[in-house]
Amino acid sequence: MARIAGVNIPTNKRVPISLRYIYGIGPKNAVEICDKLSIPHERRVNQLTDDEVLRIRELIDRDYRVEGDLRREVAMNIKRLMDMACYRGLRHRKGLPVRGQRTHTNARTRKGKAVPIAGKKKVTK
């Protein structure tokens, strides 16, 4: 069991893969961390020595913004846009796509699951 950056306990996978379970560490950062500490990519997490785990932990604490901090930063950025009442902020408030995508169709990720029109009469034959 390896505990890195708070709550994450990924094990018996290769190091660059399991590091990606941490919010804020993707493919690029995971490989970068391994290279910096010269840990071979094939190494699994349960084969790491305690010292290596410690060094990973220190490196992430020092150089990367992960988990709670990162989530807070993202939330703050969105809040800033909303408080400013600019176009992007308004789109965030309405839960619609922010970057100019079409909304006539699609945009289901932002709008959520499709809801049938309330109160519309069904055509009866």
């Binding site: 400013m84 009442a85 176009y87 992007r88 309330a118 109160g119 519309k120």
Partner: peptide, 20 residues
């Protein structure tokens, strides 16, 4: 750093008919 246009919406959306 933003543009002036971002703060002055050009469209008015009043909602769909039947949307209470």
């Amino acid at each position: 750093g933003h543009k002036f246009g971002e703060f002055s919406p050009t469209r008015t959306f009043t909602g769909h008919s039947g949307d209470k």
